[in-house]
Design a protein around this nucleic acid. Structure first.
Lengths: 237, 237
DNA sequence: CTGTTTACATATAGAATAATTAAAAAAAAT
DNA sequence: ATTTTTTTTAATTATTCTATATGTAAACAG
């Protein structure tokens, strides 16, 4: 039996019975399962392997499930993993807390395995759309590697300062959408420090200089801000 | 006052009481709400405006909620809109069906408004990355993309100045309703700065020039102001 | 049909915004 | 502590947009 196509799901729960039950059902539904009885072993494993989804209980011997969830969602390596909280704690407050903290779904015990599987599939369907790739391309000439903090223009690496890189990244992640100068300032500087509007203009100018051919990808939207376009446009006179 | 930042949510339910209750709660949570009592009016509106999320009941006078969901998820204009099914049908079979058909969440009545809001926020959080774009459509020829500050006529991008864009946006958001020149001036200028009435006329004229085929969508209402219509009318003499 | 009102069109001054340059201030590296 | 790099501000230039004036056409009322 190959697990090649089987999607890997982590189950974190300290009750062996539940793990057993879940594991059985999910394996039947053609998933590849690993179970963990506490938070520490989960974190250890995450170093080597990233699952496609995590099913998380709240009451664990070492950590609090909410805490784990928060940590996973605050880490760039793991924040993309959908988390389904599966727990006996069924008050509205707990649900709201879990969902606000970053959980993608919250199911209370006792649960229907069929519904759980359906909800797992919803998450997997959605994360299919999320950019799994950490590389962004623009008009075949600009390439951003978010893992390596690397920018290439026509396959040639260019050096950017941190702020320049941040601005480019912000624009790149909202490709084609306009970012106000205000928003850009918010993003590049640790708040609580007033920075002048025109500063952004200067950064943009420097960025454009370094981008060379790709400079035209950064468009100014008069009165609003800037945007990075994905395709070069041709002027029609 | 402005709904600029308020996210637009559609509620589709044939029970006025539920609509009322939902509407109240969601407005309090700072959302912008529109309610629909059947599928047809929903589809009509989707033609002109794309909300950020839809809350959908199953039992409706004309269509079946499952059917609506399926259609929305199969249409390129709407498949990105998160759908939360909110219904009294609480069997596992119904839930599984709804989720498999493409719903992003499934909540059963009676529900906790707080949990609903938390789940709405989960969806909006996720769609932040998705390429959801607030778009408005008019008569199949005019398209407004609010995030990109982009206007297309017959799928061709046209460049507008900020004021022109603002006017068009204002008219678009109040489609088919007349906007007085006064109101338009209010909207385009930072208040407390008197601007002459005729100025609006000039902007409208420039706007029409740029809109080409779509120019006819901007109607003047003598003595009152202007409006943007959603369907082209044919003159009868 | 005529006069009056309102909308539409054109041209233009100057207001507003962006790009560029240079230089001061802050941060990082040596 | 000094040098280098980066970030921010300030000042200048270039560009685009806005608002008004003015003139023409269309709609309306009597």
């Amino acid at each position: 039996m190959k697990n090649e196509n089987k999607k890997l799901i982590y189950i974190v729960d300290d009750e062996p019975d539940i793990c057993e039950l879940l594991s059985l059902n999910l394996k039947k539904a053609n998933f590849n399962i690993k179970t963990f009885y506490d938070g520490n072993t989960l974190f250890e494993n995450l170093h080597n392997e990233i699952p496609e989804l995590i099913i998380l209980d709240i009451m664990l011997p070492d950590y609090d499930g909410f805490e784990i969830c928060k940590q996973l969602k605050n880490n760039s390596k793991t924040y993309n993993i959908p988390i389904i909280m599966l727990t006996a704690r069924d008050t509205v407050e707990d649900k709201v807390l879990g969902l606000e903290i970053g959980a993608d779904d919250y199911i209370t015990k006792p649960f229907s395995p069929k519904e759980l599987i359906a909800r797992i599939n919803v998450q997997l369907r959605q994360s299919f759309n999320k950019s799994i790739t950490k590389k962004l391309y623009f008009a075949d000439i600009l390439e951003l590697d978010l893992d390596k903090y690397e920018v290439k223009v026509n396959n040639k690496k260019i050096d950017l300062t941190l702020t320049e890189y941040k601005i480019l990244k912000l624009l790149a992640e909202r490709a084609n959408k306009v970012c106000s100068r205000e928003r850009i300032i918010d993003y590049i500087s640790s708040h609580e420090k007033y920075i002048y509007d025109r500063t952004v203009d200067v950064h943009i100018k420097n960025l454009r200089n370094k981008l060379g051919t790709a400079a035209a990808l950064i468009k100014n939207i008069r009165g609003i801000g800037y945007k990075l376009i994905t395709e070069l446009e041709y002027e029609n006179s």
